[in-house]
């Protein structure tokens, strides 16, 4: 199985530079998380990988060759916004999209049956897309992405619109695809999904790659400066810690807090405070920072805030 290599790629639209001299690579059998808020250049980058757009400078290579119509046949792309013909039947649609990827009519029909069965969706075969719920549409879109058995898969926000059960089903299939040694690119601005799924990450902001590497290495690089507390009782001690400049609060609710230690602060005093002030302490853990915090550190609070808002809007 082959790897994907994006090297020194630049794309301009009019006077805007959407992607600026970006390089990264994705390996077979691993999932690369492409992260960043809207406008970071993720979609433009993906469009160049999928050969929907051509870079102004730099090259995108798959399996050692510059991408083109040949690589489109070996690649499955699930775009961020689901795109299907509204008034076309589910199966007919899948077969059509499959033949456009080079499958024969018969093979496409067989595979469509197989996947519809896998998703418990055989009953929908003759329904039109507009008759389906958003989640059902997303499943059909997912099937369309896999139908031609691609070796390179690109998922842009694949879980949007799915209920937890179907999201799990989808995650299982994505992990299965990884076991088959396929190269998988997973674009999202939902940090927790990226943390759960990805082996490597590539963080983009304003057309640049600001951070990349294996997820574990990236996290190790930022040390274990994060504390997670779960407790019962008065949480006023948290305010005191903040006022004293010892910690920053990442997330906080009635019984849980995630804190970042300020530079030069030890973790021990925080534990003491917690033991003194809470009625019960269920959890005290010192961990690597979540991706979200890493992102804040790399690109600044404003950008990170924007991304959190987008992620929140997505879950609606």
């Amino acid at each position: 199985m082959a790897h994907l290599e994006v090297s020194r790629v630049t794309k301009r639209y009019g006077n805007t530079v959407a992607v600026d001299n970006v390089s990264f690579s994705a390996e077979p059998g691993r999932i690369l998380g492409l992260l960043g808020p809207n406008g970071a250049g993720k979609t433009s980058t993906i469009r160049m990988i999928t050969y929907i757009a051509v870079p102004d400078a730099g090259t995108v290579r798959y399996d050692g060759r510059t991408v083109g119509p040949w690589s489109q046949q070996r690649m499955g792309y699930l775009p961020e916004e689901s795109g299907l013909y509204k008034r076309l039947g589910v199966k007919e649609q899948l077969v059509y999209l499959g033949t456009l990827k080079g499958l024969s009519q018969e093979t496409a029909a067989d595979r469509a049956d197989h996947w519809l069965d896998r998703f418990d969706a055989t009953d929908w075969a003759d329904m039109t897309i507009e008759e389906l719920s958003k989640g059902m549409q997303q499943k059909v879109q997912f099937i369309a992405t896999l139908l031609h058995d691609p070796s390179l898969l690109i998922f842009d926000e694949p879980f949007s619109g799915l209920d937890p059960i179907n999201a799990d089903l989808l995650r299982d299939i994505i992990l299965e695809l990884r076991r088959d040694d396929r190269t998988i690119l997973f674009a999202s601005h939902r940090m927790e999904q990226v943390e759960q799924l990805c082996d490597d990450i590539c963080l983009m902001a304003e057309g640049d790659v600001v951070l990349q590497g294996p997820l574990r290495d990236v996290k190790a690089q930022f040390g274990q400066n994060t504390l997670v507390l779960e407790f019962d009782g008065d949480d006023a001690f948290l305010d005191e810690l903040v006022a004293a400049g010892q910690v920053r609060v990442n997330t906080r609710s009635a019984h849980r807090a995630e804190l970042t230690l300020a530079d030069g602060t030890d973790a021990r005093p925080v534990l003491d405070r917690a033991l003194d002030h809470t009625d019960e302490l269920y959890r005290y853990e010192r961990v690597a920072p979540p991706l979200n915090e890493i992102f804040v550190e790399v690109v600044g609070e404003a950008e990170a805030q924007r991304m959190r808002e987008e992620a929140a809007a997505d879950t609606d």
Partner: peptide, 16 residues
């Protein structure tokens, strides 16, 4: 229709 339903992006990832 193809553009507003976004299906065009799927199609042009398969054909020119």
């Amino acid at each position: 229709e193809e553009k507003s339903s976004r299906v065009v992006e799927v199609i042009v990832s398969s054909v020119r």
